[in-house]
């Protein structure tokens, strides 16, 4: 029995890893295609039909580029930077519920790598460790522009982590659990958290943009001031790792947004499907629904990127510390009062 569980989880983890990689790959193509669409161009269309092989061509190009090392005394840390970024972008998927329980081969397969009590905190832990990839890489480049880019990126991530955590506290107060599985199960049918926590969702969304270093918060890569940001000195596949990590974390943060606020694998009419087509059908449709939501959020990321220009650095800090954090605290207080009121303990 024990080995069966290990094999089951092993297969599941490999599948999730492959899906994350596939998404990250095709996000690069989608980004360019969507940018082209927004700017009334065609976009990449030479490699394969409609540019479908473009990510492979890009990967091949990155692999065959010269492996350049700057004049740095910290070669090990220089290599460790992108590696940390990539690993932290990938390990968050361990606690995400990708679907409900599946009954196959006489077993109940839970579509989640691991369901821990503290999944929400685990995500925060991984997020805060992700800053190291950027900081160490930027510092080990031995270049002041890289260092300034790394400082910008990491101070922005630390600042927005605070507001993000406060937004989550209101959600956790409502659901009464830190386990993502419980949070997902609590949004059965159409009772998605976004309807009860619209302000929290907005704060979380803005913070997700900041955490993934995407426009309008991509000050780390402000070309006019900082050349290429923290990855100025990187070339070849190490550069590719940083870029890939950005896309992978975009996929993961879209997933977290969908799971926390947009009902995860729940969809309206799932009781009807369970009654008529069985529980397995509900689970499969739920997985597809979740991926649909993820695709929508990825599109949203790109939509914002090609619509809104980037903030100035003081505006970014002002938004984070003076607007989002007070708003999040007010949201917590109001949520607390609402919970007390609905329990009949207020007045």
């Amino acid at each position: 029995m024990d080995t069966a569980i290990i094999i089951e989880k092993g297969i599941f983890i490999v599948v999730i890893f492959a899906i994350t990689m596939l998404f990250a790959m095709y996000e690069t193509l989608a980004e360019r295609k969507i940018a082209a669409w927004f700017q009334d161009r065609i976009g990449p269309d030479r490699a394969g039909k409609g540019g479908i092989l473009q990510p492979l061509a890009d990967g091949l190009k990155l692999f065959s580029k010269e492996e350049f090392f700057p004049n740095t005394p910290n070669r090990f840390l220089f290599i460790a930077g992108p590696a940390i970024s990539m690993s932290t972008a990938l390990i968050t998927s361990a606690v995400i519920p990708w679907g409900d329980t599946l009954h196959i081969f006489g077993r109940d397969v839970v579509l989640q790598a691991t369901d821990i009590d503290i999944a929400m905190l685990y995500i925060f832990g991984v997020l805060s460790v992700g800053v190291y990839g950027i900081m160490i890489g930027g510092w080990a480049s031995n270049n002041k522009f890289s260092l300034m880019g790394a400082m910008r990126a990491s101070s922005q991530m630390i600042s927005y982590e605070v507001a993000m955590g406060l937004a989550i506290i209101a959600l956790v107060m409502m659901t009464g659990s830190l386990s993502l599985r419980d949070i997902a199960a609590g949004q059965h049918g159409m009772s998605w958290n976004v309807f009860y926590q619209p302000v929290g969702f907005l704060i979380f969304l803005v913070c997700s943009f900041a955490e993934t270093n995407r426009t309008p918060f991509d000050l780390a890569e402000c070309e006019a001031e900082l050349i290429g940001g923290y990855h100025t000195e990187y070339s070849s596949m190490k550069m590719g790792f940083y870029l890939f990590a950005e896309y992978a974390s975009m996929f993961i943060s879209s997933t977290i947004l969908a799971v926390l606020y947009f009902g995860a694998y729940n969809f309206p009419g799932m009781d009807w499907v369970t009654e008529n087509w069985g529980a397995n059908a509900t689970t499969w449709i739920g997985v597809l629904v979740l991926f649909g939501k993820i695709c929508f959020f990825i599109f949203f990321y790109m939509w914002v990127r090609w619509t809104i220009p980037r903030f100035r650095y003081d505006q970014l800090m002002k938004l984070g510390w003076k607007m989002l954090i007070p708003l999040a605290i007010a949201n917590i207080v109001i949520t607390a009062l609402a919970i007390l009121w609905s329990d009949g303990k207020l007045f």
Binding site: L121, F124, G125, L127, S128, V129, V131, Y132, I158, E161
Partner: peptide, 8 residues
């Protein structure tokens, strides 16, 4: 411990 010490 990870969040507070390593992360902050």
């Amino acid at each position: 411990h990870v969040i507070v010490y390593s992360g902050a």
